[in-house]
Design a protein around this nucleic acid. Structure first.
Lengths: 326, 326
DNA sequence: TTGTAAGCGTTATCAA
DNA sequence: TTGATAACGCTTACAA
């Protein structure tokens, strides 16, 4: 006999009343509440969450989908897990390693009621394939999806990129290399367009020969600089996909005796703690706030209500943080 | 009517047979299997995982408990999530922010059948309180718990620490500072004892005045060096709690014009990618392998069988990685 | 190989 | 305020 039935037996009340006490319903007499509560404590009762989930259709679990738990997504992840927990939601990690089938499992888990909602941090499947899952529960994305059905909480990175470009130009750096992340990502596209437009507006050369893609880690950064340095002409400045790439550039420059920022200026992206420690100029990216946004969107749907208090009134802003590498 | 009932109705078979097909039981005729499979595909059926979990008593979910998802635990987390997924288990993150009540919620979730098992990465509650939860499901720990009931997959850090000390002494650094993590942790205790024992064996001074605690991040490292440098005598070498602290030390030393390794040698811990990039001498710590171990322990219990193939035959080893900071 | 029927542990709808 | 009873969607003895 389950503990639930035990409580029913010992208290003399019905199944329904016991359930009401568990769920703090107001329609219970004080005597019933006290008696049942006592017995619950005595038996050290906890509800079986699978039974609750089956009955209510809600798991209070949210899935978060990403290629892997890297440093780059860490602050988003951390903030999301934290705020979700504050609102009574657990977070399940789905790491896909960039594999489409792995990734689809997360979406299937939405369909099979394992999770109530989904946050996409990075994903590799076609948006038009994924949006079919929207009918099973709310989905929001950090990565921009280029699809209205799956809303994104990301900011347009063009804006941040322009801040970096203005800063560089104002200090006299005009021959600029760009180290991008994923070729197909909308972020990369935004950044590239921002760069090209900005340079054209200022009648400066657009150096597409200094574009590099799939540069994510410090090691990637080191390698990229080695390549660039092998050519006849060294750029005056490098715009990096993120701070970790910038660290790689900085380190490799030191090894090669390239002086920073005289011979080479470096700008990172995201403003992580290490960029501060290592004196790297960077663009502050309000990542934690975007994670908060992501949760709020989901929460609003799952609770069928707006969550005004948490939806930032003023839009988020990028900010240039000037340090020693420019 | 649920899709399950729909399948029963359309196929003409019973509830049990349909279930058998879903679970790939051998005791089903080819005709039945084909007919039912067809209908399942037609209806785009997926089982409701809450119903399955309620019925079987297994969720195929494992909770991972930590203060926060920091860089330091990242490779453990990543590897654990990956291998768990390979074996059909999802991972739920419980971040506690060092709060005992938050932490207990993870353990209560084991009790309420939300997760099948638990991995402790870091925890703040008393082991004797936590071990009461062992009866509800398997628990393993990365952090050493000092309790037999909750086994730990961690290695004794004394061994790694000794490697670092031997290396330093062999290069002539004898006046050594130690930057530790949490004061009460068994790791810190191990490291401190290793240091003291090693120095005494070699008739060298034990500099307890150069002990610092709660040093975790680059910023903590910078601050620690600032303090040390303010004193009359600077140590010849610093042993750091992890590579991130070492980065902070390295950076602050550069700022202060302290030359590395001539005036100050630095040894990190863990051998992260950044230690390589930044040329920091460190101790390689097979963290991913420990995460694998952790999963295997849980898996062995949950499947009531040994997992010999995955349990490393040879014991894991620390390794000194000498770079430019020594 | 198939079917019957009893669980799994809750919530929710009525009616009283 | 309470209680009967059905519903949630699936698994699993036990029989046939």
């Amino acid at each position: 006999m389950s503990k639930f039935d035990e409580i029913i037996r010992l208290s003399g009340y019905s199944r329904a009343t016991v359930s009401r006490v568990i769920n703090h319903s107001r329609h219970v007499s004080p005597e019933a509440r006290e008696k049942i509560t006592d017995i619950m404590n005595q038996l050290n009762y906890v509800p079986n969450r699978n039974a609750v989930s089956l009955s209510t259709g809600q798991t209070h679990q949210i899935g978060i989908v990403m290629a892997s738990t890297s440093e780059i997504v860490l602050s988003f992840l951390n903030q999301f897990v934290d705020i979700a927990m504050d609102y009574g939601f657990q977070t399940i990690i789905y790491t896909t390693r960039g594999d489409k089938e792995n990734e689809l499992r997360a979406f299937e888990d939405l369909r099979s009621k394992r999770v109530d909602g989904l946050v996409i941090v990075t994903c590799v499947n076609e948006p038009r394939l994924l949006k079919a899952y929207c009918e099973y529960g709310p989905i929001v994305s950090w990565q921009r999806m280029g699809s209205d059905e799956i809303p994104s909480v990301a900011m347009d990175q063009a804006e941040g990129y322009r801040l970096a470009l203005e800063h560089l130009i104002s200090r006299g750096y005009t021959r600029i290399a760009n180290l991008f992340g994923r070729v197909e990502s909308l972020n990369t596209q935004s950044r590239r367009e921002a760069y090209e437009q900005f340079m054209q507006e200022h009648h400066l050369p657009v150096r597409t020969d200094w574009y590099r893609y799939s540069v994510f880690t410090p090691t990637d950064g080191e390698q990229a600089l080695r390549q660039l340095a092998a050519d006849a002409e060294l750029p005056q400045a490098v715009l990096c996909a993120n701070d970790y790439v910038a660290i790689g550039i900085q380190s490799e420059a030191n090894k090669q005796g390239i002086s920073i920022p005289d011979q080479l200026a470096i700008v990172g992206f995201d403003n992580t703690e290490l960029a501060d420690t290592l004196g790297i100029t960077t663009i502050h990216n309000p990542i934690a706030e975007q994670a908060t946004h992501a949760f709020c969107r989901l929460w609003a749907v799952l609770n069928k209500q707006q969550m005004e208090s948490l939806l930032q009134p003023e839009p988020l802003k990028y900010k240039l943080i000037a340090r020693q590498t420019t």
